[in-house]
Nucleic acid binder design. Structure first.
Length: 864
RNA sequence: GCUCGGGUGGCGGAACUGGUAGACGCGCAGGACUUAAAAUCCUGUUUACAGUAAUGUAAGUACGGGUUCGAUUCCCGUCCCGAGCACCA
């Protein structure tokens, strides 16, 4: 920015020249190449980006800078560091961008990747680019398809607590049928070995499909007409698509799904052994949504039909005054009376056609009476059965027992339709209000009106009620999850094709010869009919042994395992060699945004556990430590976006201030995990600091260093900084380390310290943060090896030991003066000296102190 | 509504297991150097009151209580902000 004559002098800080020079040298020497060695490893990973068309803004590199610092720090401390980068190149965003620009996704994706790479290169990251992965490369997605094949050929054995090969299941079916099989399945039919053998192929596959971990599911899906595809739950926000904001409706569809619910409990338990933020773990816990309760069957009056419900509050069974079925409930019309059939059908049809948005916008409960009654098994009284869309078809059994006195929603419904409300739980310390104005839903109370449960508190009553239900043979203890199976098909072009051909019977057959390459087609736009664009490519679809699956896999397929591929990215025989996986192992540090909490981060854990079951990995959590970086907002405090015109481009910052300044500034801004606004003035402060740092080495434009022994003061400053920075990096507290560097340089400048030994150590501890300037000065000091493979200086406590401490002396908790004592002074001497102090005497005002508290090397407090 | 975070100067933010609140940086004010500007350096900067000044006194970490010799830190209640979930029985 300033081109005064002295700026071109080789002895001034010319960051542009320096940064270019070292980025080239590091690349030429493959300085950051990672290879298996005898050294301990450290695996630091960034969430790989979608190569979007708009490039990076200064918010994106925040996490990359942090992981880069940790990687460099670990390398200086003797670790063999794996720090790779790649691109999540398949999926909706890339395809949407291609459609908007009218270019083939393969072309735009390559162009975007190139642009990302240029931007990343300017910031001096220590990635081992030889390990780059792209999810859209055939030699990468070959393995994504292979993993799908594994899911397809495995089932979950609940007795063994792990996934097993489907051939074991077939063996069991052949020998003993399925009654003794304890699989995680939706199959409710029981068959014998003989029956199994007699099944035609289609029927066999229909059964197996109910056990496979990758299976064809007919479910209600989130259908987005504008995007022409099905979306996962987490891709739908407030009833519209996360990307684009288009309306989403519910629709029945056949779809590949992964049976993630088989792993619900393990996904929950695993959270306890990993170092993630509490909030993120909580998000996953909520998403998995485990709840304990009971399933109970209610008999329909004058019928052999039964309704099974799930409840977490069996203690309130005496207060169950009606039942509600979801409109989608199977067999609902068989239960309702002839008189009511017409209005029930009408209600069901209305509910079916209502979009998510409409359902959510509803404040008033709607419903219809079925004209049928069920029997409350505890009171033996008949209770009416209703249908209403406030009951969700997809959770529990799709039916509930309604206890209006103790559930807000049931209360509201009972009020709207004038149904009976019977309180059965009252607060511990008072009588329940009568009549009830709102539901008493607290889990803290005492049962009454409840026969054998009377007088018990809620938690005890729950146990007793379940026992009774089990004794009567009408139900049992049950754990339910909110987690749904993961929809795995997308009706889109830009994704991994399934390695599946449907034979003449419509039975899915695996294609063994991988990869199944994505055909290069001209028209990749969504058809809008619900079919994938691939369905139109007849010469591809029609295969000699049948027809191909034309859906593609979702964006998260490739990202669910990419961290494993980095261990051995060019392997053509395996997704990664056993040896490389064992060495690089789990990701030690994973840095990225929290928006992936219920998507990528959950799916990756699921895949890892599955691969662990199959013996491919010997750990079952992928990311030991996870840190979510915050957002960098625009200077106006709003989210950085083209729309607000507040986007700051890192290229411009590198041009104007240099990459080292950018890196240091982003770290200095505040705690990594916080959101904070960008500030142009702030970056100038950091820029000034680096100028000052440079001048520490120079005097009158000449390198000015002394080889004499360092002064104790300088030593103390250095070692204080070593200690602080080492601790800060481990704690990911980078803002405080930058401030420690500033303090250090300020103090050394004041001392006019030009001691080579001291300054060299300062260079090394600052190298992870500002890799270019430190490397340049390191070279100018006469070093021939890169600073980035030097040794982290050893912290020596002796150098910072003080021999006296200036005690703050407070009277009644308020600091009044300071007195210096030797660090090993004994309490009695300190107390005596303090009481003789003039200022203390003044505050004592002649009175005798009640108490004198002396905390060694901390504080003295005189209590009057 | 529920769950999880969080509220500290004009601003971004420091403060180890309770022990000198406001580190570091920005901004602002004043000064030095310079013909001038840039760059650099120095001084001051929580608020109120008193004093020409050095300085002193009081208040102060969202608000109200509590525990303690001592609370930004621990406990209870209230308010506000952010994030996530949201008819999950």
């Amino acid at each position: 920015m300033y081109f005064c004559s002295d700026m071109s002098d080789s002895n001034s800080y010319n960051f542009q020249e320096i940064e270019q020079k070292w980025q080239n040298k590091w690349r030429e020497n493959s300085l950051y190449r990672a290879e298996i060695s005898y050294k301990p490893k450290y695996y630091a990973l960034d969430m790989f980006p979608y190569p979007s068309g708009s490039g990076l803004h200064v918010g994106h590199p925040l996490g990359y800078i942090a992981s880069d610092i940790v990687s460099r720090f670990k390398r200086l401390n003797g670790f063999n560091v794996l720090h790779p980068m790649g691109y999540d190149a398949f999926g909706l965003p890339a395809e949407q961008y291609a459609i908007q620009t009218g270019q083939h996704p393969a072309v735009t994706t390559e162009a975007n990747i190139k642009r990302f790479r240029e931007q990343l290169d300017k910031m001096g990251f220590c990635y081992d680019w030889e390990r780059q992965v792209k999810t859209c490369d055939a030699n990468y997605y070959k393995w994504t398809q292979w993993f799908f094949s594994l899911f397809f050929t495995h089932w979950y054995n609940k007795s063994a607590g792990k996934a097993e090969n489907i051939s074991l299941l077939v063996n069991k079916f052949e020998k003993e049928g399925n009654s003794s099989v304890n699989g995680h399945t939706t199959c409710t039919e029981i068959f014998t070995a003989n029956e199994w053998s007699a099944f035609p192929a289609v029927e066999k596959e229909r059964m197996l499909n109910q056990y496979r971990l990758a299976f064809i599911d007919e479910t209600t899906v989130n259908w987005c007409a504008e995007l022409g595809t099905v979306l996962a739950n987490e891709e739908v926000v407030n009833g519209v698509s996360e990307r684009g904001g288009y309306p989403v409706v519910r629709k029945k569809m056949k779809q590949w799904s992964l049976r993630i619910t088989a792993y619900a409990d393990r996904l929950l338990e695993g959270l306890n052994q990993i170092n993630w933020s509490d909030s993120l773990k909580e998000i996953q816990r909520n998403w998995i949504g485990r709840s304990e309760g009971a399933e109970i069957e209610f008999q329909i009056e004058n019928s052999d039909k039964k309704i099974k419900v799930f409840t977490t509050r069996p203690d309130t069974l005496f207060g169950a005054t009606y039942m509600v079925l979801a409109p989608e409930w199977d067999g609902i019309l068989e239960i309702c009376s002839n008189e009511q059939k017409g209005s029930v059908e009408e209600y069901i049809n209305k509910a079916k056609n209502r979009s998510e948005i409409e359902r959510m916008a509803d404040t008033q409960k709607t419903g219809v009476f079925l004209g049928a009654y069920a029997v409350n098994p505890f009171t033996n009284k008949p209770i009416p059965v209703w249908a209403s869309d406030y009951v969700l078809a997809g959770y529990g059994t799709g039916a509930i027992m309604a206890v209006p006195a103790h559930d807000d929603r049931d209360f509201e419904f009972a009020q709207a339709f004038n149904l009976e409300i019977i309180p059965v739980i009252k607060p511990k310390d008072k009588e329940i209000e009568s009549p009830l104005q709102e539901a008493f839903s607290a889990k803290d109370g005492i049962c009454f009106n409840s026969g054998f449960l009377d007088g018990l508190d809620v938690s005890e009553a729950i146990k007793r009620a379940i026992e009774e239900v089990e004794n009567k043979g009408i139900g049992n203890r049950k754990i339910n999850y909110k987690l749904r199976e993961a929809g795995f098909g997308r009706q889109r072009y830009w994704g991994e094709p399934f390695p599946i051909i449907f034979d003449d019977n419509g039975i899915p057959q695996l294609i063994k010869n991988l990869p199944v390459e994505l055909p290069n087609v001209r028209s990749y736009k969504p058809t809008g009919t619900g079919e994938s664009p691939l369905a139109a490519v007849t010469e591809w679809v029609n295969h000699e042994s049948g027809t191909r699956e034309t859906d593609t896999m979702p964006g998260w397929a490739g990202s669910s395992w990419y961290f494993l591929r980095y261990a051995d990215p060019n392997n053509t025989n395996e997704f990664a060699s056993k040896e490389s996986l064992e060495y690089w192992n789990q990701v030690d540090l994973y840095v990225g945004g929290s928006e992936h909490a219920t998507g990528h981060l959950l799916y990756s854990r699921f895949w890892t556990k599955f691969l662990y079951d199959l013996g491919y990995l010997n750990w079952d959590e992928p990311f030991k430590r996870l840190v979510n970086q915050g957002m960098i907002m625009g200077e106006d405090g709003q989210k950085m976006s083209k729309r607000w015109g507040n986007v700051v481009n890192p290229d411009d910052v590198c041009e104007q201030y240099g990459a080292d300044t950018l890196r240091l500034y982003e770290m200095f801004l505040g705690p990594l995990t916080d959101s904070k606004p960008w500030n142009t003035h702030g970056i100038e402060g950091v820029s000034r600091f680096l100028g000052k740092f440079w001048r520490l080495f120079y005097k009158d434009q000449e390198l000015n260093l002394s080889n004499s022994e360092a002064s104790p003061e300088a030593r103390k400053i250095l070692h204080k900084t070593i200690k602080k920075v080492s601790e800060d990096i481990e704690n990911m507290s980078f803002n405080t380390s930058v401030s420690a560097f500033m303090v250090c340089v300020n103090e050394l400048s004041t001392l006019k310290c030009n001691n080579k030994e001291i300054l060299e150590s300062v260079l090394v501890i600052m190298a992870p943060f500002a890799p270019h300037i430190t490397e340049e000065l390191w070279e100018r000091l006469g070093n021939t090896n890169s600073i980035h493979i030097a040794d982290w200086p050893k912290y020596n406590e002796e150098y910072i030991r003080e021999n006296s401490f200036s005690y703050p002396i407070s009277v009644n908790g308020k600091t009044r003066t300071q007195i210096e004592f030797p660090v090993d002074a004994i309490k009695a001497d300190i107390e005596k000296a303090v009481l003789e102090n003039e200022i203390v005497k003044k505050w004592l005002d002649g009175k005798a102190p009640k108490k004198v508290i002396v905390v060694p090397n901390r504080i003295v407090n005189v209590v009057v």
